[in-house]
Design a protein around this nucleic acid. Sequence first.
DNA 1: TGGTTCAGTGCAATCGATTGCACGCATTCT
DNA 2: AGAATGCGTGCAATCGATTGCACTGAACCA
Lengths: 339, 339
Amino acid sequence: MRNRVTLADVAKAAGVNTSTVSRSLNSETEGQVSAETVKRVRKIAQELGYTPNTMARGLRTRKSMTIGVIVPDLTNPIFPPIVRGVDSVLQSRGYSAMVVNTDNNAAVEDALFDSLMERQVDGLIIATGHTERSMIAKYHNQGVKAVMVNREASGVPYPSVIGDDASGIASALEHLVKLGHKKILHLSGPATLSTSRVRSTAFTDTAKRLGLTTKIVKATTLSVEAGQMAMNKFLDAHPKEITAVVAGNDLLALGVYHAIRQHGLRTPQDISVIGFNNMPFSEDFQPPMTTVSAPHFEMGAEAARLLLSQIQGNEPGPRKITLPVTLVVRESTGPVLKK
Amino acid sequence: MRNRVTLADVAKAAGVNTSTVSRSLNSETEGQVSAETVKRVRKIAQELGYTPNTMARGLRTRKSMTIGVIVPDLTNPIFPPIVRGVDSVLQSRGYSAMVVNTDNNAAVEDALFDSLMERQVDGLIIATGHTERSMIAKYHNQGVKAVMVNREASGVPYPSVIGDDASGIASALEHLVKLGHKKILHLSGPATLSTSRVRSTAFTDTAKRLGLTTKIVKATTLSVEAGQMAMNKFLDAHPKEITAVVAGNDLLALGVYHAIRQHGLRTPQDISVIGFNNMPFSEDFQPPMTTVSAPHFEMGAEAARLLLSQIQGNEPGPRKITLPVTLVVRESTGPVLKK
DNA sequence: TGGTTCAGTGCAATCGATTGCACGCATTCT
DNA sequence: AGAATGCGTGCAATCGATTGCACTGAACCA
């Protein structure tokens, strides 16, 4: 379909060589052409409705002006904001994003990576926590430029953009302590995810500092169902043992809501709950969720900036950018009630 | 970066011409080459880690194997499932999706369209309700293949995939009537959106058929805020006039929740509310929302199938595919209470 | 045995844009 | 006036894969 108008067409119409047209249309090279020729060529190109052919250009310049964005699952509500943040920066610089979903499946991720490479993407933004270190090393060996977002970067050769999870967990716990809580459960995500590990460690450290009695339970995935299942199991085994839960993310926290209700208990009167991410609609849950708000859009935007700067030749090395998070207090946390 | 291994490299290593390598690697042309050569070439290509260069291929074949997906805003929760549905089909057929957000801005959409054209996308999936007819006509004139999803197709030359909104609205109203409701408000989205118009018309028709007393109020956008504002205004002017609300979508319904609460009323005891879309987490709102569930993933998948068939030369014409929807009854609807 | 046929492979053009190099001509310098 | 400078433009190679056409040699036929 379409795209009949080529550089050659414009050149013929203007009575000049294609090279002159090319130089006239490109802002970096227009200085090589006389001002009036530039004006004339541009006018004619406009009239003819010329559109550059990105594939031809990319073949010659070895640049696709496309960035691959690898996420686990777009329907997980924290990723759309990240993607839009990425996109906002890319778009303003003439790049496009190609978003792929791995569903946390290594084989799928491998295939998608190949597909992105075939498409000659200029760089990668990796938002999957599961990606194995060996895979990342492979990318790096192939000379692939990349930036990680929302996952820990230690040990990998790429820069990363993350939220300040540790401080988020700390403020969550401090908030709970202020409300009188002393026995607190951490419902953690799977240890394969770097964010889960970071939050878990921060929980343990802060709890020790504050002198709290804690328990840690791991959910198998970062989903409502897994959270509900893990919490149900915990409440079955240890009823009345804790007065608050800090969940690994909002999805798990939502699962905790369900489990608490299933056990005939109430939030926050019987058990306070804190989530993580402040994902869309967390304020509309029952009750509105107290959670740590992470700047996902800005994380995506920053990752894109970092990647573009890397592509433009700056060698940032394995840098780590930490963006501040804030505790959003809503109604899922309350004071410990005396009985 | 990378992609050093080309057809020529493989050809040299195998001691054959690039054309033989090309034919050996491509399943449609491998019959032209002797079986043993194919085997040998493939083995060598594998060993060398050959990856085809999509840009070079696309330049020659005039196909990018890329589909542009135009959505208003990925952070609107109904779009990720659509996109994933699209992606699931595309991926299995070797295509990739390039997703762009218009934010319902015509100028932005125009620019993005150009950008997609430059990238030589093989087709478009359009999920924006706002797109003006003139713009669509322009696409069609340029010979662009496209399919619309989640928006009415009447008058446009492209096939479309939509949910059966009319029947969804009808079952919503029937459900309310069964609960004793007679005075019902429809909080509609802006009339510029085809889905809003369809649902609005269906509401009026069904209400007439069922002999109901109705009001219709329009929200300025399909957002929580707009829904809340419109509903607040309505409740200020007409307190106690209705016992139920059918909203144009779940976002508006959520705004209705807020407005009802702000007026010191309760859902569903004072006013029942029904949404539309059954978007993720609508079951976790307070109260869990009764809503019409639309098969967004399947709509995306079907749109992709339609588009690919169109690209492969089948001329489906302006066909319209309607997928069934179902009412999901939860706790935001209840019987009319006597006072 | 001479002529066909055909399978297997190579040659070279092609897709559309970019870019190093060379050329022509006008201007400036000595 | 002759040489040097340099601006504006054109020529042609190039990026990597695909593909119509031509060629070679073996098998087959009469």
